[in-house]
Structures are given as structure tokens and as C-alpha cells.
Design a protein around this nucleic acid. Structure first.
Length: 475
RNA sequence: GGCCCCAUCGUCUAGUGGUCUAGGACAUCAGGUUCUCAUCCUGAAAACCGGGGUUCGAGUCCCCGUGGGGUCACCA
């Protein structure tokens, strides 16, 4: 039975939940569903200071927006709950104690708290040339001594006791390669913090065991901490599940992975949804960012993706995010979305009152020429709000006003009337229509003019032309 | 910097030793359709990081360089 999980930590602002987030949930979901397994959602809120309830809420909402549903999770429960790590504290504490008993871990009463900035700066310094792994003196303190300090009530952390001469090895399920790391390259990382909460390393292993996860699939940033996890599995006496590492999406501006820290929501899910990208389009774009099917197919619904999903298609090298291609996908999806659905999507974005009937007329005209819903709103604005006065050719506007005033308000009538006028004056058709376009819509880029005038109505069309006819400005 | 991962058009990728004069998509450019823009159609330009091996034969296997990324916290 295949059981996968998506285990985000609800830290940072809700709008910092980014696209990389969805992609990892998606692939885990696809693997489980393709094989009739379960997909588990687990909330990793072990960082008491940074975890936020509203961000946890945003995680649920985001996944649902993309149609990714979980079989077990904090909100829906399941046989291996609770699914929120802050509710499983005793389990981690028990595991940590067991590890100490088996000499896989030890108490450290003097663990120094280092500042994040200080640590990062040290990476740049020369001393890093011969990086020493963390091996506190507490490592060799006798258990009797530790017991004494423990009874005295001194605060402590529990660290992994990594054997220097051990060789850690596992075969990455995605990279399809054996990865080997020497014990001396691995630090005695903290497993249980002084506040009694576990660190990620302990919690993730304890839970993946408890929840019977068969495939642990996560981002490549986790490769280097996998040895510690291997060590914990061993210490706890459980077999290691399949472990695989996905690619990391790179920011085109920096070439680095985008994280929830260093940006103002530039890659946040909310940011894209707000700008009028459809969840289906975003999802489809994401599917192909780090995964490819055997054939040249590009368009997939979620269900189709799940059916087609094949582990072999997962890439090894990190892709760069490309907004242009996302735009293309979004345009494709907008064009294939039925008009009535588009209407519902557009309505909340409009800053003026209108009727469904009018929108129904307008939507077919604009959907062909935009790539986002926001573009759509922009393009249809002139139907409701008269544009600012433009510098236009007076003769064109005057002539049009005259003939249109007499025309029956029908497509063919309007067209022949206008075209006759062009012929009569020996104007260039394009120039003439451009003058009208500017006067009526205020832009050089609009839906087809006659259709637009039809919707605008005769009186409004004439009013806009008149407004321009009185305008002193000449071209 | 140590350790680890990766390496095909600008970007996402197909390619699992011969069918590769390397295929598709986005973007770009040109043409067609057209009252603008867009859609749509047609076409063009565009890549196997470098050097050694292995082999009758290498984009495909091995090694070394180079380049890119990740990581090095009482954050995940």
C-alpha cells in the first residue's frame, strides 16, 4: 500500500504560501492516488514561535483551491492521528528518551543558542574551509552525571550521537542513485529542544513511522539531513521507507530557490490567484515544472495528471520558473472555460454595477485576447466607463457620427455605413477605424469595433463620438 | 569553503549505444487571416558545457575539469 504525505509547517504569513508548496503536495498526491493509496496531510507546527493558526488555515484553503484533497489530516482525522505535531509531544519525548537509552542520543545541558544571522555570516568566513561538525563536550559525559543534572531540574536538549566512522547510505527514489555520507560530515543535531518540542528531524521520523508512510518525498533541500533521519530510524528500530527528493524551483531573477522568507509574496499562491490566474492553469503549469510525460502532451486536468503520472517522469535538475509559459497556460484555460463560468469569475472583480446579460455579450469578445482575468477586466472597462478624451482625427469622428446617427443598430448596417464613408473620402480603412476606436474605447487595443458598438448601444456610441467631435485637440 | 545533488535550444523538456542531418511546448522572428490587438494557421532561427576514455559506433556508459543548485540552526 502506498501512503504519501505532505507535511508543511504553518510558519510565515498566510500569503507566503508559494507555488513550490502546491507542486510537492501535487506529486505526493498523484503518486498515492495513481496507485490507490492514501495521501496524508500533516501539520508540522513544532516551532512554537513561528507557527500561525491563520497560516495553517491558508494551507487547507490553498490545497482545496487546487483540488488536492487529503485522506487523513488534522481536520478530517484518520487512524493514525493526531495529525498536528504539537498534539503529539509525548510521542517525540518517548522516542528521544529511547534513543538516549540506546546510546543513539545524549543530554546536553549547555547547548548554546546561536543567532541565525551569526550562523549565516559564519558560512562566508574563512573558518568554514575546515568546517567542524557539531560535537559538544556533553557527548562524552557519563550518564550518571547527566542523571544528576536531570534530577536537579536543569534545562536540556537531546542531541543525536552520530558515530564518526559510520557510513550513511540510501538510494534516492527519485534521483535513482545511491547517496552516501560519512558520519564525520554529520553534526550531532538537536532532536528535542529545551522547550520539550522536537525538531523537524525527530518529529518527521517518528511520524512517518507512526503514520506508516511508504514514500517520503520532499524537496532536495532535505538531502543533507537525510543521514540524521536514517540514524533515527535505526535507533528506533524501524525500517527506512522509500526516500526521494524533488527538484527545487528556481527564481529566474536570482537563480536561487524561492523560499517563503525572501520575498513579498512574489511566488505566493495568493499573488497569482489575485491577478486572475486560474487554479487549473497554475496547476497545469506546475505539473510540467519538474515532471514530464512520455509523450508531448501539455494539457492535463488534475485527474488526467493522476492517471498519467509516472515516477520516471520526475526530473533531477532544478527548473527555473517561467511566467511566460504560465501566461500561455492561463490563456488556454480562459479560452476553454465556458462563458457562464467566466462570468462568475469576473463578476467579483468588477468595480462597477452591471448585468449578467451585458457581461454575457462582452465576454466572448474579450476572452480571446487576454491571458489573465485581470487583463479581461481591464479590456472590458470601456464598456462601462467612458474613456478620457483622446486626440483624434476630427473628420473621421464627424463623419462617423453623421452616418451612425442614421444607421439601424445592426452589425451589417453599421459596417456598410462606415465602409461607405471610408470609400467616399478615400481614407485608409485602418486609420479610420483607429480614430473611432480611440474615441469610443480610449485604447488602440480593443475587441472588434462594430461588435463593441453594438453592445455599447447607439446613444452611448454617438455620445462618445460627439464628445470627441467637440474636442479642440487635433491630430 | 566542506559535504551532497545536477548538467540537451533563452526557458520547460523528449531522448535509456546505432532509427539524432536531436523531437515537442513557451518565448522570439517572418508570413497568412484581420478595422486594432489577440486567437488561429504556416514557416524560420535556436541546444547535446569542455577534455579524456570505453565501444565498430556516444546526447546516451566511465573519469577529470568547469558551471549551476542545495546544505552546513534549540527553522522547517
Amino acid at each position: 500500500m502506498i501512503r504519501t504525505r505532505f507535511a508543511p509547517s504553518p510558519t510565515g504569513l498566510p500569503e507566503s504560501i508559494h507555488l513550490g508548496f502546491v507542486i510537492r503536495a501535487l506529486w505526493n498526491y498523484a503518486l498515492a492516488k495513481k496507485n490507490g493509496g492514501q495521501f496524508v496531510l500533516r501539520i508540522e507546527d513544532t516551532d512554537q514561535k513561528r507557527s500561525r493558526k491563520d497560516t495553517e488555515e491558508a494551507i487547507y484553503i490553498s490545497l482545496k483551491q487546487f483540488g488536492i484533497n487529503w485522506d487523513e489530516g488534522p481536520d478530517v482525522g484518520g487512524p493514525y492521528g493526531p495529525y498536528r505535531q504539537s498534539e503529539r509531544l509525548e510521542k517525540y519525548q518517548q522516542a528521544a528518551k529511547l534513543l538516549v537509552e540506546k546510546d543513539y542520543a545524549y543530554y546536553d545541558f549547555d547547548a548554546a543558542v546561536r543567532e541565525k544571522e551569526e550562523i549565516k555570516e559564519s558560512y562566508e568566513s574563512k573558518e568554514f574551509t575546515d568546517q567542524l561538525k557539531i560535537r559538544p563536550a556533553a557527548r562524552s559525559v557519563s550518564s550518571a552525571e547527566s542523571q544528576k543534572r536531570l534530577e536537579a531540574g536543569e534545562p536540556y536538549v537531546i542531541r543525536a550521537k552520530i558515530p564518526e566512522d559510520k557510513v550513511f547510505e540510501f538510494t534516492d527514489w527519485i534521483l535513482k542513485k545511491k547517496i552516501r555520507v560519512l558520519g564525520k560530515e554529520v553534526s550531532d543535531l538537536i532532536l528535542l529542544k529545551s522547550d520539550g518540542f522536537p525538531t523537524y528531524h525527530l518529529a518527521v521520523v517518528v511520524d512517518d513511522i507512526a503514520m506508516q508512510i511508504s514514500h517520503v518525498l520532499r524537496g532536495q533541500e532535505w538531502i543533507s539531513s537525510t543521514p540524521v533521519h536514517l540514524f533515527i530510524y535505526e535507533g528506533l528500530g524501524y525500517p527506512v521507507p522509500e526516500i526521494g527528493h524533488f527538484t527545487v524551483i528556481l527564481d529566474p531573477a536570482t537563480g536561487k530557490k524561492f523560499s517563503k522568507r525572501d520575498m513579498e509574496g512574489k511566488f505566493g499562491i495568493k499573488h497569482w490567484l489575485d491577478r486572475g490566474y486560474l487554479p487549473e492553469a497554475i496547476l497545469n503549469y506546475l505539473m510540467l515544472l519538474g515532471w514530464a510525460p512520455k509523450d508531448d502532451r501539455e494539457l492535463f486536468t488534475l485527474d488526467e495528471f493522476v492517471q498519467t503520472f509516472d515516477q520516471a517522469g520526475l526530473q533531477k535538475s532544478n527548473p527555473i520558473f517561467d511566467e511566460k509559459k504560465l501566461n500561455w497556460f492561463n490563456g488556454q484555460y480562459i479560452r476553454q472555460t465556458p462563458h457562464d463560468q467566466l462570468l462568475q469569475l469576473i463578476k467579483p472583480k468588477l468595480e462597477y454595477e452591471t448585468t449578467d446579460d451585458k457581461l454575457t455579450d462582452i465576454i466572448p469578445l474579450v476572452k480571446e485576447r487576454v491571458s489573465t482575468l485581470a487583463d479581461m477586466v481591464d479590456m472590458m472597462r470601456f464598456f462601462f466607463i467612458a474613456p478620457e478624451l483622446q486626440a483624434v482625427n476630427q473628420e473621421h469622428v464627424q463623419a462617423a457620427r453623421q452616418v451612425l446617427g442614421k444607421a439601424t443598430w445592426e452589425k451589417t448596417d453599421i459596417e456598410t455605413a462606415l465602409l461607405d464613408e471610408v470609400k467616399a473620402h478615400d481614407w485608409k480603412t485602418g486609420d479610420f477605424f483607429m480614430s473611432l476606436r480611440l474615441a469610443i474605447a480610449g485604447s488602440k487595443v480593443t475587441p472588434p469595433l462594430t461588435e463593441s458598438m453594438l453592445i455599447l448601444g447607439q446613444s452611448e456610441t454617438l455620445a462618445r463620438l460627439s464628445a470627441h467631435a467637440q474636442n479642440e485637440t487635433q491630430t
